[in-house]
Amino acid sequence: MASRILLLLAVALLPFVACNSEGDALHAFRRSLSDPDNVLQSWDPTLVNPCTWFHVTCDKDNHVTRVDLGNSNLSGRLVPELGILEHLQYLELYKNKISGELPEELGNLKNLVSLDLYNNSLTGEIPSSLGKLKSLVFLRLNNNKLTGRIPRSLVGTASLKVVDLSSNDLCGTIPTAGAFEHLPLKSFDNNPHLNGPELLGSVAYDSGCK
């Protein structure tokens, strides 16, 4: 009887454990940021879950579904812990001063609909793991300092409707298959080392890449 009660208690506490891990992930992100305007002042890690924090939205099960921190004068880096937020649908961090690389762990955000990181100072390559985001509709990484090729894994993301990779330093060629078939070329403007759309079976994929 006692073991059954303990089991039921453990099951009942699972949502709180999950919420605590999501809160820990967001707090790890907060620690990596400089926040001169104190927009993250309410992000208190001692609370049961992060659903009462400003700029965070949760679903009915207290899972984090949105982080809205666009145009918040934040600087710092993205952290791998963000990949823990598997219920996250919207990650809005545009128009800040965030630098460093995009963590591979962003590919764990299986419910992500919108990834808006435009107008920051992000560097490095676009992780191929983003191709695992099968719910992704909006991918806006324009006006950063990203380098390398456009990951071919993104071609298989059928849900993609809006992609903006303009004003970076990407190289190679622009995909034309799958989700990229109907994207306007302006989505790739101002990448000096990026060549035009590739032909079927083109071997120019490495052209312009180091």
Rank of each mutant, 00 (worst) to 15 (best):
M1N: 14
A2F: 14
L8T: 15
L8H: 14
L9W: 13
A10G: 11
A10N: 09
A12K: 01
L14Y: 14
P15D: 13
F16I: 15
D24G: 07
D24V: 12
A25V: 04
A25I: 07
L26I: 06
L26C: 02
L26K: 00
F29R: 00
L33R: 03
D35C: 11
D37A: 13
D37E: 15
D37W: 14
N38A: 15
V39L: 06
Q41K: 11
W43V: 05
W43Y: 06
D44A: 08
L47P: 00
V48P: 08
V48H: 10
P50H: 02
P50G: 02
T52A: 12
N62F: 13
V64F: 02
T65F: 06
R66F: 12
R66V: 12
V67D: 01
N73F: 12
G76N: 06
P80R: 02
E81I: 04
L82P: 00
E86S: 12
Q89H: 07
E92P: 04
K95P: 07
N96L: 10
I98L: 08
G100P: 00
P103G: 05
E104C: 07
E105I: 08
E105W: 07
N108D: 13
N111W: 08
V113C: 06
S114F: 11
D116M: 08
D116H: 06
Y118M: 06
N119M: 08
N120Q: 06
S121V: 15
G124R: 03
E125S: 07
S129D: 09
L133R: 01
K134D: 14
F138Y: 12
F138V: 15
F138A: 04
P151N: 03
P151W: 03
R152C: 11
R152Q: 13
R152D: 14
V155T: 11
A158R: 08
L160Q: 05
K161D: 15
V163L: 03
N168M: 02
G172A: 03
G172V: 01
E181G: 09
L183K: 00
P184S: 03
F188Y: 06
F188K: 00
D189E: 10
D189P: 00
N190I: 09
N190G: 09
P197I: 02
G201R: 04
S202D: 08
A204H: 12
Y205P: 03
S207Q: 10
G208R: 02
K210N: 12
